[in-house]
Write a protein that binds this DNA or RNA. Structure first.
Length: 326
DNA sequence: CGTTGATCCTGGGCGC
DNA sequence: TGCGCCCAGGATCAAC
């Protein structure tokens, strides 16, 4: 479930592994995940250099040298895995091994740093490409980028960046990055300068919605998902079922700070891995060991010892301590 | 407008 | 062993 810290971890990984490389091929196995016109995809990507990697909320923005941007959303189970060219095949290599059949997590999954429990032999931990690999982008130096998604909710799409109207065919059908982001009406980045305590308090005013539900609203704050919403509420000792407008000043201050602290820790730890989330090297994040409530139903609260509860709020499950979250 | 709920999708886990 | 059922959840869209 890639949320802000997971997507930021992937962004940093891509920055270190594919920036400066030139796209050689784009293999789309499942159109639904990258539905743009094939000619536009080739025009935008083939032969182009990766210039930079940005992130807005849970969205990755891969900037190309020709003023196209490849936007990627991982939704719940998407992965972007980079395999460096390890098989520098010599002359006679018309062999089948020209196919990229590489284990992308070379350690047994249970031995990967930060991994706690889980499922050692899932399909999406097999060598690449596998049945959940839907798009493969290769680079001229032999590096390959695999877009895997078990649930097929994730997607890629091309956006125009800057004023690249000179790029021909069907450009008018492609939105600009600005148009696309405007359409999403995302709220401020919680770790950015626009997310002020005033913005946060004003946003809670007159909102009858439950505070947990509001934290998940991307138009209020962009990038929080179920894990970090639960963790922030625990850190601030606020029950997820409180109405947003019921928080006292001291509580909204604590929650405001808790949101930043848990997201920053999540980034420091390289994200949270339960099942499918991996960084670009295919390694799980280490944040799971730091979670205080998410995924800890029935286990003792680390603050007061009472049992952590799980309750449906909206369509999501909320994890919280019934005693020390008020 | 604010809010709620259904929907997309697939594999894992559970009860019987 | 296998079947049916429920669950995970980010974002979108329809409906109240």
């Amino acid at each position: 479930m890639p949320e802000l810290p997971e997507v930021e971890t992937v962004r940093r990984g891509l920055e270190q592994t594919i920036v400066g490389k030139t796209v050689k091929t784009v293999d789309i196995r499942v159109r639904k995940l990258f539905p743009d016109n094939r000619a536009v995809i080739d025009d935008a990507l083939i032969g182009q250099k990766i210039q930079s990697i940005d992130r807005r909320a849970k969205l990755l923005l891969i900037q190309l040298s020709n003023q196209w941007t490849l936007a990627v959303h991982l939704k719940m189970t998407g992965q972007l895995i980079v395999i460096a060219n390890s098989n520098q095949q010599t002359a006679n290599s018309n062999s089948q091994s020209g196919q990229n059949v590489l284990a992308y997590c070379r350690l047994p999954i249970a031995d990967c740093p930060g991994f706690v429990g889980g499922h050692p032999q899932k399909a999406y931990e097999q060598s690449l490409p596998h049945q959940h690999t839907h798009v493969i982008i290769t680079f001229t130096d032999g590096t390959a980028l695999y877009f895997n998604d078990l649930r097929k909710f994730g997607w890629m799409r091309l956006l125009r960046s800057g004023q690249n109207s000179k790029f021909g065919i069907q450009n008018s059908e492609s939105k600009t990055v600005e148009q696309f982001l405007d359409g999403l009406a995302l709220g401020p980045e919680p770790l950015g300068p626009e997310f002020t305590i005033k913005y946060f308090r004003d946003g809670l005013k007159n909102r009858r919605m439950l505070i947990k539900t509001l934290l998940l609203d991307q138009s209020f704050i962009a990038g929080i998902g179920n894990i970090y919403a639960d963790e922030a509420l625990f850190a601030a000792a606020i029950k997820p079922t409180r109405r947003a407008d019921s928080l006292k000043k001291s509580e909204s201050t604590k929650l405001y700070q808790a949101i930043k602290v848990v997201l920053e820790l999540g980034i420091t730890q390289g994200g949270t891995s339960f099942n499918s989330y991996r960084n670009v090297q295919g390694t799980p994040g280490a944040m799971r060991a730091h979670l205080k409530v998410y995924g800890r139903e029935g286990q003792p609260c680390l603050r007061c010892g009472d049992n952590i509860m799980r309750k449906r709020i909206g369509q999501r499950s909320a994890h919280f301590c019934p005693t020390c979250q008020r």
